[in-house]
Amino acid sequence: MEFILGHLNYWFVIVLMMTGLYIVISRGNLVKKIVGLNVFQVSVFMLYISIGKVTGGTAPIFPTDLQGKIQIDPTIVYSNPLPHVLILTAIVVGIATTSLGLALIVRIREEYNTIEEQDILDQDAATAHAENLAHGDAMGGRA
């Protein structure tokens, strides 16, 4: 019990991660896949943020006096700010990925008239089949 409660943040992260990955793999709808990918990424963000927390720590902001000099009080425990900073970058990357993914979906919809993976696969398979007929099937080719 202690093990479970003590690592509560990890359990959440793991559940979230698996949920996200499952959505990416199982959903046929391209937008839903992107959503899944987002969930997956966010779970990692949570992991980072949660490990930055130091028990009893406060926000890592150093108070300054009127001259702007930093007053460091060694008794105060601060949380680790570095993971937060890292995740800020990762969030930006995540947003870029999502927007690019969505943009691709828009283009795919224009070309294929569908955003269901199976339909796209079928259409691609049909194209490939036609090509093989035209250009010689694999080994039966001329070369």
Partner: peptide, 22 residues
Amino acid sequence: RALSAAYDYLIMGTIGATFFVI
């Protein structure tokens, strides 16, 4: 098909990158 290829690459690539971050 470049589009669906790029999309697949995006999904796979992002998963890979996320694994790396983990």
